[in-house]
Design a protein around this nucleic acid. Sequence first.
DNA 1: GTTAGCATGTAAGGAGTTACATGATTTT
DNA 2: AAAATCATGTAACTCCTTACATGCTAAC
Lengths: 204, 204
Amino acid sequence: MPRNSGVLELAVLGLLHDSPLHGYELRKRLNALLGSLRAFSYGSLYPCLKDMLARGLIAQETPAQSGGQRSRIVYRLTAEGKERFQDMLSEAGPSSWEDETFGVHFAFFGRTDAEVRLRILEGRRSRLEERLDGVRAALARTRERVDGYTLELQRHGLESVEREVRWLSELIDSERGAERHHQHMNGSTTTSEGGGDPSATTGR
Amino acid sequence: MPRNSGVLELAVLGLLHDSPLHGYELRKRLNALLGSLRAFSYGSLYPCLKDMLARGLIAQETPAQSGGQRSRIVYRLTAEGKERFQDMLSEAGPSSWEDETFGVHFAFFGRTDAEVRLRILEGRRSRLEERLDGVRAALARTRERVDGYTLELQRHGLESVEREVRWLSELIDSERGAERHHQHMNGSTTTSEGGGDPSATTGR
DNA sequence: GTTAGCATGTAAGGAGTTACATGATTTT
DNA sequence: AAAATCATGTAACTCCTTACATGCTAAC
């Protein structure tokens, strides 16, 4: 029984995949990675690490305390941890396109199979489109009852979701384009383009 | 000791301010009001109502079961509830411009003093600008380390926040304009053009 | 007559924060 | 020497969801 959300665990696995890190640094990278999406406190990170350690997903690496600072506990992925990471990435289910979860999955798309990427993007998009329908229906039903501010709030919310749908559509097109060009290199290149490089269509 | 978040309580107070409602209907309006921002389940709404009832903020009104359906428990605001609502609306503190809270406060701007509205809008904006600085700094620091997808995620997140800042700026300008000549330009602009002045559409 | 929606609730538990406690190291 | 930041951790608590339990009413 995992004591953590899955989101946090996935993010930790992903970050440790690149390089071993200690908790404090891990948290900073976590919050940089998720940016405005989410923020975790030590109170959730450390217990999570403890749990993952107990389950054998990560291992402690006490660095030689010769020159450097002591008291830093560096964690690295075990083979089981790598396996678990791949398993979690392969899961393209309803849990992959919820608000919080989607961002983390997306952040690790560089290590995700092209077909899984597409399924997650499309799942996320249709999820948002369902929500759009709901909000639009609610807007139509309550149009007369609400005041200007409530209306403005809902209008802005609607626009935000519509904007994200367009973003997803561009990404999906981009993925399909890359797929056609049979550029299916599944290399472990931590930098630049692997698979469908998303910056291709958004041009900046 | 309130057993609920404050957000939920404020929203319930605001909705019951308009008209008495029963729990089931209340929840629907709640989720319509907050749209894509948030959703509450019965498991949090009913206990909240129970608590608010115990604190005297709301009262049960068992409707005459002559013609209509039984088993519907209609709640209405008490005098204390109205007072509490006004108190909560007048609070323009850091708690008013957090993600979840801000939306609810905004939805009831129609009942909020103009000066408080401005302070909340400005507080929210500077909150987001702080976040922008943080994200931009993180982006600059990690530019070389991340792959295309991570970068795209952060870029999109940044754009979303920038967009909300512009929205807030338009609202603030609109508020100031309305404040200056105490009249509304009444463009009926519920669409994106100009942002409109929400307070103008339904004067009170 | 059975599925679907309306309506109210409770118990258990998950996920995470806050506040606290501790100590080392760096900066001022 | 004091203050800030790095670093790790725990306990209590908050807020909310899920799953369950119940019964009524409308539609098909």
